[in-house]
């Protein structure tokens, strides 16, 4: 269970949000460009400090400025897939997936085993030795997802994971994401600005505008006059 409540002053507006995501639930965080979606993920991941509030994951406080609590980024156990997938281009698919396990000093045999599992799950076996810089968009996204899942995260966050994918890859990544989240029973936040993506993948949707909640509810109920719907 993820519980988020924070304020953070940005250049153009002040963000103030509070929401929670249950285990095994996918929240679609929606909004137009510059509405604060990615900033929200960065605050939860610890890349940015909030001005006030409290972020709690499975009962443990990740961040609470009033108490001076700020768990280091590398100790939060959050699987974070960035917008461009950010696969390390100089490493092979296998080394990308193993990266977090090596950083956490997992024994070598266990790493090999876990990496094989992940590659099988994401259908990446044939690409194991390929340098990640040479992959297609969908393959990069699957590698990034495998790498994030490999560390056994307590929370999965994905920033616009479908924006650069073709229809087929989008469908595959959506299905994989849903399956994993349901199987691992972890909370998941997917940032997107496309209503269709939200309705296909999410259990719950929240639309934000200038850092504040504009609407929250079940994905099929997103109102037509919402900022995210207006231009689509």
């Amino acid at each position: 269970m993820l519980k988020v409540e924070f304020t953070r002053t940005l250049r153009d507006f002040t963000m103030a949000l509070s929401f929670q995501v249950r285990d095994g639930e996918i929240l679609a965080l929606m909004g137009n460009n510059g509405s604060g979606k990615s900033t929200t993920l960065n605050l939860i991941a610890g890349l940015l400090p909030p001005d006030s509030g409290c972020i709690r994951l499975n009962g443990a406080t990740l961040c609470e400025p009033a108490q001076g609590t700020h768990i280091a980024i590398e100790d939060r156990r959050i699987g974070y897939v960035f917008q461009n997938a950010a696969v390390f281009p100089h490493l092979s698919v296998r080394d990308n997936i193993a990266y977090g396990l090596r950083a956490r000093n997992m024994p070598r045999l266990e790493i090999t085993e876990r990496v094989e599992q992940m590659m099988e799950l994401m259908h990446l076996e044939d690409l194991a030795p390929v340098k990640a810089g040479n992959l297609s968009g969908g393959q990069k996204q699957r590698t990034a997802l495998a790498r994030a899942i490999a560390i056994g995260p307590a929370l999965l966050m994905m920033d616009e994971p479908f924006s650069s994918l073709d229809v087929e890859s989008t469908h595959a990544v959506k299905k994989l994401t849903r399956d994993i989240v349901k199987k691992m029973q972890i909370p998941c936040i997917v940032v997107t600005h496309r209503v269709a993506d939200c309705q296909e993948i999410a259990d719950w949707a929240m639309v934000i505008c200038s850092g504040k909640r504009e609407w929250e509810g079940r994905p099929p109920d997103i109102p037509q006059d919402c900022t995210v719907c207006r231009y689509h």
């Binding site: 960065n42 991941a45 890349l47 980024i73 590398e74 100790d75 939060r76 156990r77 959050i78 699987g79 974070y80 960035f82 917008q83 461009n84 950010a86 390390f88 990266y99 977090g100 950083a103 956490r104 990034a144 790498r147 994030a148 560390i151």
Partner: peptide
């Protein structure tokens, strides 16, 4: 692109 570094950090590096 700092998202490479951010990713590495979230992975535990």
């Amino acid at each position: 692109d700092q998202s490479y570094e951010y990713t590495a950090r979230t992975l535990g590096a």
